[in-house]
Design a binder for these strands. Structure first.
Length: 482
RNA sequence: GGCGCUGUAGAACAGUGGUUAGUUCGGCGGGCUCUCAAUCCGCAAACCAGGGUUCAAUUCCCUGCAGCGCUACCA
């Protein structure tokens, strides 16, 4: 039997980073077994439904490279199906209509909590006689359909957590159909998983406690139970609970916008709560597909570690071919006003400039800042031009010498410049820092930047000399020194 | 409160009834060096606690504690 799995988010917001990992695990399993990956949108809660979420979820999945084979299927378009199966449950005596009002249910819960009892439906409508039931139905009282939890215990096997058994007395008579005619998750997902012939249900750990109810439902229908697999949540930090909006960026779209590469996010997420069993840390999607197995998914919630994501992202940025990276940073440069949308990014000046900062980037969004001095000549205070253990006079002299040397060089390329400047330091008995630091500072206006030779080359002779001369005048007017 | 799941360095994961308990990020130190980054070398850093079982327990069992989840006409 071929593998059929699904990712079934509810469109109540943008795709969450934890949701993406659940989707990833489903995707990997499907691809590994040449199976089918289905996207199903569980939009049965009309109160929480958000029109744009479904689009955002799809956009995020595509960005991450998790293309689905079937769907998106919207549950809201299938309510007759759920109604039919809920009726079947009623006919089989596994479910019953409940006429209790929300007000009564709330009162009951409060009373139970006050007595420190577990809040649970008191099953009042279970006891209705057929006649009463019919009468309420005929008179059109709003009602829900509740499942009828039987006596005994319920057991199931989970791929990650192993065998689990619970006493049915711990289970509530869960609402299956709301009074508005829409199913709840418990009925909706189960009917669909059956109809879509899902072979492995891979979902968040938060569903583990309600899985026994689902098992009871499968039995009531007489359906085969798919393999069940719950994956732990992603946590925000020690004692901070599940990663959520209040812990900063959790939306996949937000990571996309911040300039994280999809390969990096996927690689990072895969290793968060799963391991291949060896020491490999860097994976292509293809390698993940080969190595993946549900059995090796961890059973503890993993804390989301931004530092490691940054490292992984930096690694992938370094691996990206220059021309490709240029395309990826273009939107950021445009947004920063450093280039216009019509400009081509594939020009020597930009490519060379980018090359000098490529290994310093953790995210694409850092590009404008790292590259800023290439676009705008910096204001450089005298204090920045003078390295430690040097005086302003010494720097003035060495910079002036360097300027006259550089103005004689025609082949303004890094190797040539390096050779000439190093020779200059040796001949004049100058420490390298005394020559190169002020040059680099004058060109970039930054304490930390790419090296002097490469910046000289990228900026070119004219612009470089212009900036160096300007720095010299700054050193000539002592008042600018701190 | 009840029920369930889970506890290996700061973080993510390996691993084992007898090991110098491993890898990656992060931290610290060093090399390189015009700064930062990258890269290279090195260091520190963990088996939640208490009971069992056993010749031997981080590993198996129990209890405690802690974390997480669920406890809705939300998913």
């Amino acid at each position: 039997m071929s593998v059929r799995v699904r990712f079934a988010p509810s469109p109540t917001g943008e795709l969450h980073i934890g949701g993406l990992r659940t989707a990833l695990f489903n995707f990997l399993l499907a691809r590994k077994h040449s199976g089918t990956f289905i996207l199903r949108i569980e939009d049965t809660d009309r109160k929480r439904f958000d029109q744009h979420s479904a689009d955002h979820i799809q956009q995020a999945l595509r960005w991450a490279g998790l293309d689905w084979d079937e769907g998106p299927i919207f549950q809201s378009q299938r309510i007759e199906i759920y109604q039919k199966y809920s009726q079947e449950l009623v006919d089989r005596g596994a479910a019953y209509p409940c006429f209790c009002t929300p007000e009564r249910l709330e009162q009951m819960r409060k009373a139970q909590e006050a007595q420190k009892l577990p809040p649970r439906y008191d099953r009042r409508c279970r006891a209705l006689s057929p006649r009463e039931r019919n009468q309420f139905l005929v008179e059109g009282y709003p009602h829900t359909i509740r499942m009828m939890v039987p006596e005994g215990t319920t057991s199931f096997h989970d791929i990650v957590y192993g065998n689990i058994t619970v006493r049915n007395q711990e289970l509530d008579d869960q609402v299956l159909m709301r009074s508005d005619g829409y199913p709840t998750y418990h009925l909706g997902h189960l009917v669909d998983d059956h109809l879509m012939q899902i072979t492995q249900v891979i979902r968040g750990e938060e569903w583990l406690p309600s899985t026994p109810k689902h098992v009871i439902l499968y039995h009531a229908f007489g359906w085969e139970i798919p393999q069940l697999c719950h994956v732990p949540n992603i946590l925000a930090g020690r004692g901070q609970g599940k990663l959520s909006k209040r812990h900063g960026a959790v939306s996949v779209i937000a990571y996309m916008q911040e300039g994280y590469l999809p390969q990096a996010v996927i690689n990072f997420l895969a290793l968060l709560g799963w391991s291949p069993g060896n020491d490999q840390e860097i994976f292509t999607m293809e390698e993940l597909i080969q190595a993946f197995s549900l059995e090796r998914v961890a059973h503890t919630g993993a804390i989301f570690n931004r530092e490691k994501l940054n490292f992984t992202n930096g690694y992938y940025i370094r691996q990206t071919p220059l021309a490709e990276l240029a395309c990826q940073i273009k939107p950021y440069l445009v947004q920063a006003g450093q280039i216009s949308a019509e400009d081509t990014i594939q020009q020597p000046f930009l490519l060379q400039a980018l090359q000098t900062v490529q290994e310093r980037m953790k995210t694409l969004s850092e590009a404008p800042d790292l590259l800023s001095f290439y676009f705008n000549p910096p204001e450089v205070p005298a204090s920045l031009l003078v390295p430690k253990k040097s005086t302003m006079e010494e720097i003035r002299a060495s910079l002036a010498g360097a300027i006259s040397l550089l103005s004689t060089i025609e082949d303004f390329t890094a190797p040539v410049l390096e050779k000439a400047l190093r020779q200059y330091t040796v001949e004049n008995g100058l420490a390298t820092a005394r020559v190169l630091w002020p040059i680099r500072a004058a060109l970039t206006g930054k304490e930390a930047s790419p090296g002097a030779f490469e910046v000289l080359q990228v900026l070119g002779k004219d612009e470089s000399l212009r900036r160096l001369e300007k720095a010299l005048t700054v050193l000539d007017s002592p008042k600018t020194l701190d």
